[in-house]
Each structure stands twice: as C-alpha cells, then as structure tokens.
Design a protein around this nucleic acid. Structure first.
Lengths: 199, 199
DNA sequence: TTTAATTAAATGAATGTTCAGTTAATTAAT
DNA sequence: ATTAATTAACTGAACATTCATTTAATTAAA
C-alpha cells in the first residue's frame, strides 16, 4: 500500500507519470483530470493544487517526456573508443527496439500535434532536437578528429540521421509482420551508414 | 449566401471539411460537435443526424484525409516518359512544399496518434501506405524495365523512400530558419537518390 | 504551531446524445 | 397539373454526464 500523505517531490512526478499512462490509454483527447484522479485514488482538486490547470499539467508532461529522452541520450556514450565503431554503435542503438520504446509513440504523436498549435511546446521539442543534434555532431567530430573520415558539415549529417531515424520510428508502426520489421530495420541502418559514408 | 437546405451529398463532406478546420485550430482534444456546429451555423444534432456519433465523424475525417492524399498521388504521374527522369521528378514532388502541405501536419499527427489506440484507423493508414508503396514500386519497375538500373527489391526501396519522406516532413517542422529548410530539402532529396542508386 | 497535503462540496459551462417536432423537397397518384 | 404521401433535412429543447476549476475545510507532518 502506498503511503497516504506524500510530499510534492513525490506526488508531482507521480501525477505526471500517471497522466502519461492515461494518455497512452485514452489519447490526449480522452484524458481528463477526473480520470487521472480516479486512477490515482486522489481528489481532482489535488491535481489542480499542484498544477493550477490542465494546460500546465500537459506542459509538465512535455517536459517529462523530453527529460526521459534526455536521460537516454546519455546512455549513448558507447563502450569502445574507436570513433567509427562508436558511430556504428550509436546508429544501431537508435534503431533498436529499446530505443524506439523509450517513449510511447502514440503520446509522442499527440505532443507533436500539440506543438503545431502551441508555441511553447514547439520550442521545447525544437530544443530537444538541438540537444540530440549536438550529441550526434559530437560523435561525428570525434571521427573527424581521428582522421579517418571527415565530415564537411556535421550539422547537416546529423540532421540526416535524425530524419531517417524519425521516419523509421514513424513508419515501422505500419509494417505488417515481424520479419518485415527486422529487415526494414537493417535496411534503414544501412541507409544511414551509407549517408554517413557519402559526406 | 449559402443555400439554406442542402442535401447529404453537399452537407456531409462540408461537415467533415469544417471538422478538419476545427481540429487544425483546436486539435483533436479541443474539437467538439458544439464548436463545429457553431462554426457552421447549424444545430449540433444535425451533425449527429448524419454521423450518429463523434467517433463516426472522426473515422469519416480519416477517410477524407486519406482520400485527399490519394487524389494527389494521381498527380504524381510525371510529364516525361524517361523512367529515370520520372523517378527524379517523383522524389522532387515528394519533397516539395506543395506536397508536404497537402494535408495539415498537425492533424496528421493527431490521426497517427489516434491510430495507436484505434485499430480501424491503424488499418486505414496502413492501407494508405500500401497504396503509396505500390505507386512507387510501379515507378521503380518502369526504370527496371527500361534496363538502366535494376532494383533487387522494389518494395524494400519504396519503403526507404517513404521513410525518408516521412522523416523529412516530420523534422522540417523543427528547423529554425528558411534557408536552413532549403538546404535541408536538397540534402534529403540527395539522400533518397543515393539510396536509389545503391540498390 | 505552523505549514503542506489533501479532501469536500459546489460551481457553471460544455460535453455528446436523444427525441419529438417542423419544414422543405421529392415522388406518386389523381 | 394539382394534390397527397413520403422521405429527407433540419431545429429546439432537454438529457445526464463530465469537464476544469474555485473556495473552504480538514488532516497530518515538521
């Protein structure tokens, strides 16, 4: 049984996590403070107490999702010191099931949709992409520094990687069977590596 | 002034179009039958009369969006008969502003999100992708038939094209300035053409 | 005892939907 | 060609429910 009275440091992130789950189940359009409260066995007004209103709660959720993604970015630092191997590893991690499952794609789509109408969300997501891009550029520059391959424009290359990754994560949802998914992943990894070589 | 009494053939698609607009403005989570009715200066129950309930209306919207996309697919048939030129043209159309603006990306994201929870929507979107894929395969096979380049697995190649296109359409939204968008497009077109050559 | 966590109760507005009725257009019969 | 019957388009009002939010009171921890 959960301790009855908790402090804000526990309760607030707990509310956000549960809100995330509600949206997974019912979508952003089906999520409400009432449902969320019922799910958590707390009173709706407690949620308002912590987040003032629903918009704030949703903004906090965006932060949460971005933060969770950010945590994973750090895990990208791959075992080996060989720059090229690092690059290969990074790409393979991007296209792994674990990586694609970091956040729920359904919720991600909802947030992306929201970002088209909400400038603050748009900015947050843009910043997240900038972080990811910076991280990839870092890896590319390590390769360049090692002298093997040089990237004319690492920022450009990073964008290509992100684009193919995004498209992959998006489109894989609409493939029919599992073995198709497997070969699809291989193909997309190859495409990215190809794009890397051609810079 | 609009004719007061219209028949179903006019009214139903009109409702769907307006519903589309409401979602562009307020998102799927902000759209309601009430708002839609007010916007159209009709009674909410008239919408129910035609669509029975909100879910049906949303399903009809999915069909509408897919149909609008499908109409554009037909315009893909490009002027020239030279297969390779056709291929090039097709890719350039995919990455054109006009093409990316066929449907509203915000609404598309909302529908993609919905598809993660609604099997019927998922199937509809999957089918749409199959149509697009088939169309691309057709073009690839024309090139193969001309004997210039042969594609080992056109279906595979088509999936790569769709993936990069999807990622492009998705990610371009988070680029900062216009000239960046221009060079980004060029880069992605190049990437696709590269992927085509390497099959 | 002060502060923070939590609930209770109540709010008005908006939600989707039903149902009964009205008005207009179409069809068939005279 | 006029009229009657039928169908379809549309409105009005009311429905219970849910919605986010407010304000005040209560409970527990520091």
């Amino acid at each position: 049984m959960v301790k009855k009275r908790q402090n804000a440091d526990i309760r607030k992130p707990d509310i956000i996590r549960n809100y995330h789950e509600v949206i997974i189940e019912d979508g952003l359009e089906g999520a409400s403070i009432g449902k969320l409260a019922k799910k958590m066995n707390i009173h709706p007004s407690l949620i308002i107490h912590y987040f003032q209103n629903k918009d704030n709660l949703t903004l906090a959720l965006v932060d949460y999702i971005i933060y969770e993604s950010g945590k994973m970015y750090q895990k990208l630092s791959v075992q080996t010191d060989k720059p090229e191997q690092r690059l290969q590893n990074m790409v393979e991690i991007f296209f792994s099931d674990e990586w694609c499952a970091i956040t729920d794609i359904g919720v991600d789509f909802a947030m992306l949709s929201l970002s088209c109408r909400n400038e603050r969300v748009q900015t947050k997501i843009r910043d997240m992409y900038l972080v990811l891009k910076g991280l990839i550029i870092g890896e590319l520059e390590k390769v360049s520094a090692a002298g093997r391959i040089s990237f004319r424009d690492p920022g450009r290359t990073a964008k290509i990687i992100i684009t193919i990754y995004d498209g992959y994560r998006h489109f894989r949802h609409y493939l029919i069977n599992e073995d198709e998914a497997g070969s699809f992943r291989e193909d997309m990894v190859k495409s990215v590596m190809e794009a890397l070589r051609k810079q």
